[in-house]
């Protein structure tokens, strides 16, 4: 669903593909549409679910239904047809759409139960619930609408990075570069109580030279960046939006020839 075949591509810092899930999701080709929506759902379902749970203060079962409802509408081209990239970023637009779905459902006298023929996405809500216990305290401090946008962006980046890391792990395993990923995991992902371990310490543990630690980490970081940027480009509607999101997510500003 995410990051297929992007690792170890060209030498450029930014992906060359210009395929956009937003455009493909409006395609008449069912396979193309399905691929695009899978990608959008994988990147957005957790932030959307957490947002409904915490910002709208919905219980878990109701938030699950609303999340399913939201993505069903997305699949049915309810939302993406109206999206204008010149007016907003996709993630901002989708969050506003979520607000609309939840508000409309709340206005109705009781939620409409979706019929038996309604699409049901297989989403791991229990994992999202576990994550919620960690992000809930941060959301309680949110006061302004701008802060809510920032919180949603952070959750979206968390979702994007989580999928990127998973993709990197799979690719490293496939290419026999497990040590590369393990070093990346220890050095960049783990929250060690005493802070980051030194390269020398890691080199001793893995029986390699300290310069190898540097090189392996550089490889893993480079591939992680490539994966994230490739997927980011896919879930952005326009080149301009991709540039802005790349800047937000990784602090990078793509060049014209990237």
């Amino acid at each position: 669903m995410f990051g297929d075949g992007t690792i170890g591509g060209g030498d450029g810092r930014f992906p060359e593909t210009r395929w956009s899930a937003v455009s493909a999701a409006r395609s008449d080709d069912p396979a193309e549409r399905r691929r695009a929506l899978d990608l959008l759902i994988s990147a957005y379902w957790k932030p959307v679910y957490k947002y409904i749970r915490l910002h709208w203060n919905k219980p878990s079962d109701e938030a699950q239904d609303l999340t399913q409802e939201f993505f069903t509408r997305l699949i049915e081209k309810d939302f993406l047809d109206r999206f204008d990239p010149a007016r907003a970023r996709l993630r901002t637009y989708l969050r506003v759409c979520v607000d609309g779905v939840v508000a409309n459902e709340s206005k109705a006298a009781g939620r409409l139960k979706r019929g038996g023929d309604a699409l049901h996405l297989s989403l791991d809500f229990s994992a999202a619930e576990i994550e919620l216990t960690r992000v809930a305290p941060a959301l309680r401090q949110i006061a302004s609408p701008g802060s809510i946008e920032d919180w949603f962006e952070k959750e979206w980046i968390r979702s994007l990075f989580t999928l990127g890391v998973e993709c990197l792990r799979e690719e490293c395993e496939r290419k026999g570069k497990q040590i590369h990923f393990r070093l990346f995991e220890i050095y960049d992902l783990d929250d060690a109580p005493g802070g980051r371990r030194s390269y020398e310490d890691l080199a001793r543990e893995f029986g390699i030279a300290a310069t190898d630690v540097t090189n392996y980490l550089a490889f893993a970081r480079r591939e992680f960046r490539r994966i994230v940027l490739a997927e980011l480009r896919k879930i952005c509607a326009t080149e301009d939006e991709f540039r802005r999101e790349a800047r937000s997510v990784l602090g990078l500003d793509p060049r014209d020839n990237d």
Binding site: K154, I157, V165, D188, L189, F224, L250, G251, L252
Partner: peptide
């Protein structure tokens, strides 16, 4: 914290 480290690593 991990996200911040990844952002830094990504822009390395």
């Amino acid at each position: 914290d991990a996200i911040e480290r990844l952002r830094e690593a990504g822009s390395e």
